[in-house]
Write a protein that binds this DNA or RNA. Structure first.
Lengths: 200, 200
DNA sequence: ATATTAAATTACACTGAGTGCAATATTGCA
DNA sequence: TGCAATATTGCACTCAGTGTAATTTAATAT
């Protein structure tokens, strides 16, 4: 509301604000309904109504229904690759990711993570899409690692490191769910990496 | 056509034979059309027509369109877990799967594998479903391993071993595709496992 | 203020996957 | 031959997702 700035894209315009709010409303509406009645039992018509928009407008904000869930999932992915990018030099690829994974996991709210994970389990379609984000994740990680470990000789090692790390994360979240959040995510991850070091 | 047997379920009845043939016709029709015009551009109506059945009957044989592709993928999965089950004792979990993976990979026709892999890449939806079979794979492998390595202490190690092996397979097929089949699958896999041993 | 442009919202009509149901046809077996 | 189980089909329906074109609303230049 501050009316000072004469112009410039520095201040968020009305348009951008509304856009952000609508996006948020759709996500919130979706989550609310998914939790209440399940993912598959929730139609886009319902979500649109709950968010106060038309069904068609939904597709102006999201490519598909499952994008609501996936957009949340992707938040952590971004943080992870960034952590790898900012990692100190001198460590091996696997060590680099491991540290990044554990550091990022410290900031993930367990409750919410479990909730999303359980929602995703409930629908085969979403479950499937989730794994796409894992692969995107792996690729992004490999990209980030390539900068730190250039040269074609490492290529396979980098891919393996990324794969194992994403896999570790996946396993950790599953365990978190099974344990119903008793142990914090970073602890679970440390255990997993310890087992990994012991040669598996 | 041998008309000898008077009765008994030992011989395949007419019903079972037709069922098998229909299943086969659907698969063949689907693959033919997918290759010719792409997965997304092929409708179930077309597949049904090509296979000489009604659209509704398709769903009597398959749960969904992508099951055509997935059913082929699953063939190898079954062989893999069986190879693990029949593996000799005395090796570590990872060694056990590694040997099984490599052995099974020797019987996979490269051409066909590349074809299916490329088809799957062409559709995001199928791509997604494919990863579900990977996870099913991992679970089946863990099951098989549990018999050989009982006790809850190994649980994490088994899951990791399964994850890495399925990941290795995935990576190998990708490489096979990129190299356009120059190197045979077992060779690629041996390379990957060598890198893995070198500590990644 | 006003006209102009670009972005946002909506309605409408359409395709295609997948399901429920009920009717018909075919096969296996007594 | 008759009966039960399995296979096949048509029809009507729901829902996700897309194309198109019209309308509304915000940003900007005059």
């Amino acid at each position: 509301m501050a009316s000072g700035q004469t112009k410039g894209p520095a201040t968020e315009g009305l348009r951008e604000r509304k856009r952000r709010e609508t996006l948020q409303r759709i996500t919130a509406a979706g989550m609310r309904l998914f939790i209440k009645q399940g993912y598959d039992n929730t139609t886009l018509d319902e979500i649109a109504a709950e968010a106060g928009i038309s069904r068609r407008t939904f597709f102006y904000y999201f490519k598909s229904k499952d994008e609501i869930l996936l957009s949340m999932q992707r938040l952590n992915s971004g943080r992870l690759t960034e952590a790898v990018r900012n990692a100190p030099a001198g460590a091996s690829p696997l060590e680099t990711i491991r540290d990044a994974v554990i550091r990022v996991s410290e900031e993930i709210p367990a409750r919410e993570m479990i909730g999303i994970h359980r929602l995703m389990k409930s629908s085969a379609a979403v479950q499937a899409r989730k794994h796409i984000t894992y692969v995107e994740n792996e690729n992004a990680l490999v990209e980030a690692l390539r900068v730190k470990f250039p040269g074609p000789k490492h290529e396979t090692a980098l891919k393996l490191a990324a794969m194992m790390s994403v896999g570790a994360m996946r396993l950790a979240v599953e365990t978190l769910d099974e344990e119903n959040g008793k142990r914090p995510l970073p602890d679970i991850l440390r255990d997993i990496y310890a087992t990994l070091d012991k040669g598996v």
